[in-house]
Simulated assay, not measured.
Amino acid sequence: MWRHIASNALTFLLLAMFLLGGVILWGKGQYQAAGPLTDAICVEVPRGTNFDRVSASLVDQGAVTSGPILRIGADYAEKTDLLKAGSFLVEPGASMEQIVDVVTRGGASTCGTEVVYRVGVNRVSVQVRELDPATSAFVERAEFDQGVDETPEIYTDVKAKADTRFRVAVAEGVTSWQVTEALRGIDLLEGEVPEVPAEGALAPDSYEVRPGDDRAAILARMEAAQEVLVAAAWEGRDDNLPVSTPEELLILASIIEKETGVPEERRQVASVFVNRLNQGMRLQTDPTVIYGITKGEGVLGRGLRQSELRGATPWNTYVIEGLPPTPIANPGRASLEAAARPDSTEFVFFVADGTGGHAFATTLDEHNRNVARWREIEARQPAQEN
């Protein structure tokens, strides 16, 4: 009898183990299978929340079919305690396993609201935008000029949210003073800036920042990035350039940056300045004259006067020979590369052509004809605007 009971118990145990194994395999399959989402969504993970609340939210949004399976899978993977606060993009068809990885991986939020402080040559603007998960494109919700316009309420609201991301986007051609003043005006940053970094020392780029970040530390990040760019451009430079140090290359790149906003002609502009330097001609470029007047502190806001073109400053390349003593702005990677590897041309002149670019010339007669055409375009512009 006891043998019979033991045999039945063993059979029942084996059956239970078999069924449990099947359930585990089924659950694992559900955890790793493609999920029900047909469109991407943003999943917000509030600070201090737990997997119970996150799984319930995911079920409500139709991202997962079973909250318990999600929680068991996260616990089995030892990720239950790794939940990160933020707002995260979940792609269509994401499995529970992939979703758990997204909300526990860490790093910056990949979804939700973003505040971008744009440091431009003429203005510093603040843009509040939100990622549309359906298109993976940002939708602008507000934009205003820092220190000029009234601060919109939405900026105050999103700045206080834990999952909002912040970036400082520095445009090519801004001066170190402009960047420093912009950082001083960003209210979520902290710390004093003892002095403005050297002109040209900051890499134009987009930098992620966090509330409470130190302003001087952000500037140090920009300086370190520019050192890398300058070193790479110097290492890859052409032979026989009329510059003898990385600093001179940086100065030349800054002039190129200020002379053209057309990416395709940077190397042509660079060739003009290289040809002039090689031939002992003065560079005669207006942006250097402007820098001699403003020292990079703000925008001139008007045309140059003849007296200023003739006035002697260390940066007036209508007066001095060769390069000015310092850069006149912070050049980006493309201008550094153009200075290091200019086009091979015989151009020694250029003037605006009315399209945003320039007309290049090898002789003074050709240049004078280009200038005459530009004067005609200038003369027509007021009539077109009225």
Rank of each mutant, 00 (worst) to 15 (best):
V272M: 06
F88R: 00
F166N: 02
A162C: 00
T260V: 07
E257K: 03
G311K: 13
Q268K: 13
L10S: 12
K161W: 11
S55G: 13
G27H: 01
F88E: 02
R276G: 07
G311F: 10
A334C: 11
G173T: 04
M1H: 07
E181C: 01
R305E: 15
E208Q: 14
K159N: 10
E223A: 14
Q127T: 15
V262A: 09
A63W: 00
R47E: 14
K159Y: 04
G93I: 03
A169G: 02
T175M: 00
V228S: 09
G322P: 12
E143V: 10
I256G: 06
M17L: 14
R184I: 02
G86Y: 07
A225V: 08
G311Q: 15
E247G: 14
P211A: 09
Y207G: 04
T313G: 01
S66H: 07
E248H: 10
R373G: 15
R267H: 12
A40F: 05
I251C: 13
Q98S: 09
E321T: 10
P197S: 04
D81I: 01
G106N: 01
W2H: 12
P152N: 10
G147Y: 04
V158T: 11
R380Q: 15
Y31T: 00
R53P: 03
A182F: 06
V121E: 09
D343K: 05
E153S: 14
A56Y: 13
R373K: 14
A216L: 12
I154K: 09
V23Y: 10
P287T: 01
T104V: 06
G356N: 09
N316F: 08
E44C: 09
V45Q: 05
L252D: 12
L14F: 14
T180I: 04
Q381K: 13
L131A: 05
D81A: 15
E264Y: 07
F347K: 02
P325I: 04
L336K: 09
G62W: 06
V196D: 08
D214K: 05
H367F: 13
N50V: 07
V262K: 12
N368E: 15
L83G: 00
A63I: 02
T317A: 09
H4L: 14
I320N: 03
N368P: 12
T260W: 08
Q178Y: 00
V179I: 14
S66D: 13
A56F: 13
Q146W: 11
V319A: 08
G191H: 06
